[in-house]
Nucleic acid binder design. Structure first.
Lengths: 132, 132
DNA sequence: TATCAAAATGATAATTATTATTGTTTTTAA
DNA sequence: TTAAAAACAATAATAATTATCATTTTGATA
């Protein structure tokens, strides 16, 4: 019953997700790894993201322009998505409620995850008058 | 400078969104209206949803299986998405933070919307041992 | 009411993210 | 070493969304 080791591809994909703050999508991961791993297939990136989801190693924090963005930090924390550049950021607020996983919900609803997402303009786009 | 009236199609689409608690996607709206409006095009549904978004008449509350789900109630309130059936629900909690639009965010981040989303199993799927 | 430009529409092609398929390679456990 | 299971690359298929374009509807105004 030894835990199965990850394949080298899977390890590289997971590491790429862990090593970035971009909350990447599949394409970003693929483009990042492809140069150093020329035989990587985009399908493999998608397949492994699916595995990571099942294993609760990542969460989907939002979709931006139809693309799912994931986070390897699965502890509850709020995110900010820039409606200009599409960037996804971790953010600090004075609201601690996003840490609370145990709110009492309507009778019969059993939640296992909670996501808090802000929409707006990020600092970079604010300063550069981004017109995306 | 009189405000332009909505076309009959646009009115029907908006009414369909307002009249349901399903937090529908484009396809749902189309299937709902098509019988009584046989010349309705799916493109028109998408086009008008885009207009409603621009005019802040609807919010996208989440994506379920790659499909955007919208809500005509644009006041801040939390949602629950069932990972079994894909249903999206309004939900009550003992957390009022989701009503607070004015949290102090990290320096330079300007939020204009906040979304709170729970993931879990809805009452119906809990009781029917849904295996979707 | 007739007219004309802007807006909206239907039909459908194009785009794009994601998933499925298939044959091959790698990994695992004995 | 070896056979089965898992993972893989390549690519086809699927499905949501957007773009195109010719036509129709709308609304203001003459």
């Amino acid at each position: 019953m030894a835990k199965r080791n990850f394949s080298s591809k899977r390890n590289a994909i997971y590491k790429a997700v862990c090593d970035t703050k971009t909350h990447p999508g599949a394409r970003w991961i693929y483009d990042k790894l492809k140069p150093e791993m020329p035989d990587l297939s985009l399908a493999t990136v998608y397949r492994n993201i699916a595995v990571f989801k099942e294993e609760n190693m990542v969460n989907v924090v939002c979709s931006v322009n139809g693309e799912e963005r994931i986070d390897s930090n699965t502890t509850a924390h709020p995110h900010f998505v820039c409606s200009c550049c599409g960037g996804v950021y971790d953010i600090n607020t004075n609201d601690n409620a996003h840490n609370c996983q145990t709110e009492i919900l309507d009778k019969g609803f059993r939640a296992d995850k909670k996501f808090v997402l802000y929409h707006g303009i990020c600092p970079k786009c604010s300063s550069t008058d981004c017109t995306n």
